[in-house]
Amino acid sequence: MKTKTYAYVVTAFSAAIIAVLAQISIPLPLGVPITGQTLAIGLIVTILGTKYGTLSVLLYILLGAAGLPVFSQFSGGLGILVGPTGGYIIGFLVQAFLMGLYMDKLGTTYAHAIIANLFGMVITLAFGTTWLKIVADLSWTAAFMGGVAPFILVGVLKAVAAAWLGIMVRNRLETARLLPSLS
């Protein structure tokens, strides 16, 4: 199974996982919900690495931008990307790329996966909060209180879970000789 077709099928399947976990959503004020997207992205990048992890996130964003209801609460379209949550969604792409680079360079161990996932959380929150401040015309304090504070504890929990599950799945895929073809 060392074909490009296999890698692209895994990439598409991974984008679908992000779309499914995006529907796990807890609405909060300012229109930025707690979702399963960051868990999915951390998990997928930990498993697939930079190239296919980032491609999965890019595919997810493109599907949503095209209008498919893959974003949180079964939403989609360019309006979501320019709305209050758009910065978080664009941040997912940067998160995936930088997390993957970190683990590619320093190794995909539990410790590095946790650090990469925490780093990824910070990246997404920075992009999202900056965009939220601009779109909603908020002060930095209000943007922080609505766009960062509610996500810190749950973000840390999701980062640790994504790292732990990701390393476990990655190790099993490597043992089954299913992962090396994705490199």
Rank of each mutant, 00 (worst) to 15 (best):
K2E: 15
K2L: 14
T3K: 02
A7S: 15
Y8S: 13
V9E: 02
A12G: 14
S14P: 02
I17V: 15
I17L: 12
A19C: 08
V20W: 04
V20L: 15
L21D: 07
A22T: 13
A22H: 08
I24S: 04
I26L: 11
P27M: 15
P27H: 14
L30K: 12
T35A: 08
T35R: 06
G36V: 05
G36S: 10
A40Y: 06
I41G: 09
G42R: 07
I44R: 06
V45E: 04
V45G: 07
K51S: 12
K51Y: 11
G53C: 10
S56D: 09
L59N: 08
L59H: 12
L59W: 10
Y60M: 09
I61G: 01
L63T: 09
L63V: 10
G64I: 07
A66F: 06
A66C: 13
G67N: 13
P69L: 10
P69S: 13
Q73F: 12
F74W: 13
S75G: 14
G76E: 11
G77F: 09
I80T: 11
V82N: 08
V82E: 10
P84H: 11
P84G: 10
Y88A: 06
Y88M: 04
Y88K: 05
I90Q: 02
G91M: 05
G91A: 13
A96R: 01
A96S: 07
F97M: 14
M99K: 03
G100V: 04
Y102Q: 02
M103I: 07
M103N: 02
K105V: 02
K105S: 03
L106I: 08
T108K: 14
T109G: 01
T109H: 09
I114F: 10
L118R: 02
F119W: 04
F119Q: 11
G120V: 01
M121Y: 08
V122H: 03
V122S: 04
V122K: 00
I123G: 02
T124F: 05
T124D: 05
T130F: 12
L132A: 00
L132I: 04
S139P: 03
W140V: 00
T141I: 10
T141Y: 06
T141W: 02
T141H: 08
F144P: 01
M145D: 07
V148G: 05
A149Q: 02
P150L: 04
P150S: 11
F151A: 01
V154E: 00
V156D: 05
K158W: 07
V160W: 03
A161G: 01
A162M: 04
A163P: 10
W164A: 14
W164M: 06
G166T: 09
M168S: 13
M168W: 13
V169P: 05
R172G: 09
L173K: 07
A176H: 04
P180F: 13
S181L: 12
S183Q: 15
S183T: 11
S183W: 02
